[in-house]
Design a protein around this nucleic acid. Structure first.
Lengths: 212, 212
DNA sequence: CCTCATTTGTGATACATTTCTCAATCAGCG
DNA sequence: CGCTGATTGAGAAATGTATCACAAATGAGG
């Protein structure tokens, strides 16, 4: 997933993956009216060491003041810029079953940079249903409509059996980032980012540590 | 999160976290009627190297046959035993808003070892609502009911502002594994496992790699 | 029954990530 | 205006993880 480039030093993907949590925590602090914080305060809240937070941030620049710490609104702005969520990304949602509907109704994406603008499904019974601002559209029209709207971010909430086919179509339409809710591994070309959400896998990860 | 013990060599948490995906893939193969597979076949399907899969499995035993590969039903059984999902875990769900309702209706947990058996919410308007087999209960009764039923696994779908308080109560009631859907970092004592689900964080991870 | 093509399990090696440490810097204060 | 306590940023060291490479084992085919 990480980009490579000759001039700019490449940043570890695992570091990039922590930034959204830094941002989330900083915004919670900002909402409480706090103006400054320190790497150790952030570390406590995030369950990480202060050194890790300082090193992670140092990949991107010098955002703190020695002796003082970090200005919260400033650091929020910087992280939003780095993560490119200082704008709103149009998102296409595919699959309007129970899960897709729940995603469509979830309001947590909005103020973190994402807005679902198109929904597709292949089931004729669902096509045409409308909800807050958009209508469920036929998947046969998907590639063209996604391409025309230049949408580059997708959420995939279809059965595992059709997930790969739908992902291929999305990529054909120009999508370059896929949040995959289907419990299957997607094969995508270089230049396309995939993140997987599998709650049952998280659960099984935890039961390993439980006593029988 | 990983256990420590003097006698048994401790297994890297990152390895444990991959096992559910191995299991998921093996079960898909089994569903296709396949009997055997190899580390390289698995690696291709999972986007990992064959060496990694062999090394991961070797932490737990010798499950393959040289020259042949792995017997799928056998390896499925082994992984289910290792992850302790060769049984069904009773789960308590807290929070019956949009998200909690979606989780309650999701059928993907069932055949992966989890069954939601209790639901709690603090909103009087929601208490008493009943659905497939259970009734939404008052959160004031939660600690006692969870303790009485010896439930050790929870899913947390409450607002970020109350997540920590609810987690504290769950732990007081004996819960030792929490799947946290609230967009906040939980502080828990040693011996309690937490896994976080934050779709917006995954999205922000991906936008980092998109061209402006 | 011998050879060949495969594939595992694992020690050794290479690579990646985290933590340690400390010089440099800063605001506050007397 | 110089001292004090706090805190950053980053090189060095320590730790953790992934890959390599190969001996050992296996079934198939002649």
């Amino acid at each position: 997933m990480p980009h490579k480039s000759a001039s700019v030093k490449t940043i570890p993907d695992i570091v990039v993956g922590r930034l959204p949590f830094y941002l989330r925590t900083l915004r919670a602090l900002a909402a409480e009216g706090r103006e400054i914080t320190s790497s150790s305060d952030l570390g406590n809240r995030l369950g990480l060491t202060s050194a890790q937070i300082r090193k992670d941030l140092s990949y991107f620049g010098e955002f703190g003041k020695q002796g003082l710490g970090y200005n919260i609104p400033f650091l929020v702005d910087q992280l939003r810029r780095i993560l490119k969520v200082d704008r709103v990304w149009e998102v296409v949602l595919v699959g309007f079953g129970d899960l897709g509907r729940a995603i469509a109704h979830y309001h947590g994406f909005h103020d973190r940079g994402f807005e679902i603008r198109m929904v597709f499904d292949s089931d004729p019974a669902k096509i045409g249903q409308s909800l807050a601002g958009f209508t469920v559209d036929d998947m046969n029209a998907m590639v063209e409509k996604v391409r025309a709207a230049k949408v580059r971010v997708a959420m995939l909430a279809v059965p595992a059996t059709s997930a790969q086919k739908v992902a291929d179509l999305l990529i054909k339409g120009g999508v370059r980032a896929i949040l995959n809710y289907a419990p299957t591994t997607l094969n995508v070309p270089k230049g396309v980012a995939v993140q997987n959400i599998d709650p049952a896998a998280h659960m099984q990860h935890m039961t390993y540590y439980l006593e029988p």
